[in-house]
Design a protein around this nucleic acid. Sequence first.
DNA 1: CTCTATGCAAAAACTTTGCAGGGAT
DNA 2: ATCCCTGCAAAGTTTTTGCATAGAG
Lengths: 121, 121
Amino acid sequence: MSNIEKLINNTNIKLTTARVAILELFTNASKPLSYEDIKSKLAMDKATFYRNITKFEEENLVTSFESNDKKRYFEIQKNPHAHFICSACSKIECLKQQSIHLEGYKIENIIIKGLCPDCNI
Amino acid sequence: MSNIEKLINNTNIKLTTARVAILELFTNASKPLSYEDIKSKLAMDKATFYRNITKFEEENLVTSFESNDKKRYFEIQKNPHAHFICSACSKIECLKQQSIHLEGYKIENIIIKGLCPDCNI
DNA sequence: CTCTATGCAAAAACTTTGCAGGGAT
DNA sequence: ATCCCTGCAAAGTTTTTGCATAGAG
């Protein structure tokens, strides 16, 4: 059984080919992916994609955030790190985890908006 | 001339009653507001609101971010600070500016997602 | 066999655009 | 007088839901 299959079997949701396919894409991606990124690579209905994403988030396998291009971006919940979104070019970069501690809170994701070096001129 | 009127006159956009009304609401608000928050208080068409928001962001009077309730939230660009969005209850809190420095970047906004103390049980 | 997942189509929610009329300088 | 702004209606985009069929355990 592959690592991804184990990941799913450790949850309360069923192991299906659609779910394995989504998690494989996320595992191999170097950055967060939107549904638009996914649909070119996976012949899967959007309803299936979004319903599975909801399940993944409930099971804490995946995190997401909204970018300023109005899309949600998803990624595997491992090696938590911060994200930079450029408000000029909408590029998304992964940053090393910024050490933020908030007493009593559980931090799942950090999104920093601003101008990337290319646009900050 | 009020402070808000001066603010607008320092930009390249015209001083209109709609624009003053929006900025007054943001000035008096203790937290970021969505269009839904605005429309109950302002008899203004959504097209006007969104077109003005676009201008405000171009003029750096206003910043925005997307929450996990699928709405954009807006606020006056002053006293920059971070925001916490609870992924369980969607509550938005303003936090004191977290000291993040990224060489070469311009940081405009920081959004931290996770569980607030009420939901982190 | 039973319960959950999937695909299709339609709906929902938020935001943007076209166009004609109104307001600011 | 000119150019920008506004409201209304319609369209656009992303995400969600209903329902019948297919698939997993």
